[in-house]
């Protein structure tokens, strides 16, 4: 008993120091991230109350609850905050409406989970199915856009004429709203017999080639004058200068462009599904949700698209880290 006060604190210090070290390690990374997410979710839940209050009270009244004031007509004269203040006990109903204006986070999560895991992947209700339809067009468009972007950048770096004639058009192409030009591209391609995945991929490529052009022109030009002089002293050809210096020097720029490009590709593929009344794809899912007032479905499709984009960007990041490390350029 006499040595307990001595040993206990020392053991306690050891443990707490370890716990503190772990907490510090976590605190630097996970802690703030979790805190930010928690705050956003809390704001979201809070926002559901005023957004859904009218609907919530209507449902409650139909179910026999006492609502003040009585009757939808009377309530329409009042603001959301006043209605919330008058019926505090009925408010939690705002988080479980069947057709909410703003669905609660858990409703979206359930719909997302159901869409991803609860359906056969060939079902029209499966988000995996719709995501794949969009993803296939995204990847095709991304490949076309990246290839085209790199080719244009090679041309621009090597030819002054090409720089002056192509670059302005590339910039102009990005100032046109994609939502305006997408239907025209689809109609034009349809009239020459092209349909299916290709028109979507073209719109996807239209958005993704630009960051690749800009990034790769910068990357190909990143070697300084001394590096170019060195190769001149070896009497290197233009092709050798490109292959030995410009191309490897541009790789870090390429990956930055690809990350922007792949996200733009996904946006392009989704936008391409909107004006055509497409039957499948995340865009079609968004459109159907808005036709039928299925806000939960819209939000679930939005989150599916966001997760898909995050996955694609993360995948490119992995390839980047692996490749640059192999080339000795990973820090």
């Amino acid at each position: 008993m006499s040595d307990a006060p001595l040993s206990a604190p020392s053991g306690g210090i050891g443990r707490s120091a370890r716990v503190a070290a772990v907490a510090r390690g976590m605190g630097h990374r996970a802690g703030p991230v979790v805190a930010v997410v928690a705050v956003l979710v809390a704001i979201w839940y809070a926002a559901c109350l005023p957004m859904n209050v009218g609907n919530t009270l209507l449902q409650a009244e139909r179910a026999g609850a006492v609502v003040t004031p009585e009757g939808p007509a009377a309530r329409r004269q009042m603001g959301s905050v006043a209605l919330m203040a008058a019926n505090p006990s009925l408010l939690p109903g705002a988080w479980s409406l069947e057709r909410p204006r703003l669905p609660a986070p858990h409703q979206v999560a359930v719909a997302l989970w159901d869409g991803v895991a609860g359906q056969s992947v060939t079902s029209a209700r499966s988000l995996v199915y719709h995501a794949w339809v969009t993803l296939s067009a995204t990847l095709l468009g991304f490949a076309i856009g990246t290839g085209l972007g790199i080719l244009l950048a090679v041309g621009i770096v090597h030819s002054r004429v090409m720089e002056m004639s192509v670059m302005p058009w590339a910039i102009v192409s990005q100032t046109v709203p994609i939502i305006a030009i997408a239907p025209m591209i689809i109609v034009v391609l349809y009239s020459v017999g092209v349909q299916g995945i290709v028109p979507k991929a073209v719109i996807s490529a239209y958005l993704s080639f630009f960051p690749v052009v800009v990034g790769m022109v910068t990357g190909f030009r990143s070697p300084d004058a001394m590096q170019l002089d060195l190769l001149r002293t070896y009497a290197a050809t233009r092709a050798q200068i490109f292959g030995k210096l410009r191309l490897p020097a541009s790789l870090p720029y390429l990956f930055a462009s690809l990350k922007i490009g792949v996200a733009a590709s996904l946006v392009g593929a989704i936008v391409a599904e909107l004006p055509t009344g497409a039957q499948a794809g995340l865009g079609a899912r968004l459109l159907a949700g808005s036709y039928y007032g299925q806000n939960i479905q819209i939000w679930a499709a939005l989150f599916a698209a966001a997760l898909l984009a995050a996955g694609l960007v993360g995948l490119i990041g992995l390839v980047e880290r692996g490749l640059l490390a192999r080339m000795g350029m990973g820090q």
Binding site: M226, T233, P248
Partner: peptide, 17 residues
């Protein structure tokens, strides 16, 4: 190939050994 040139900066390619 009459000469080799050494610049003020080493200018080694970081991606090559």
């Amino acid at each position: 190939r009459a000469y080799g040139y050494v610049f003020q900066a080493a200018g080694l390619y970081p991606w090559r050994t």
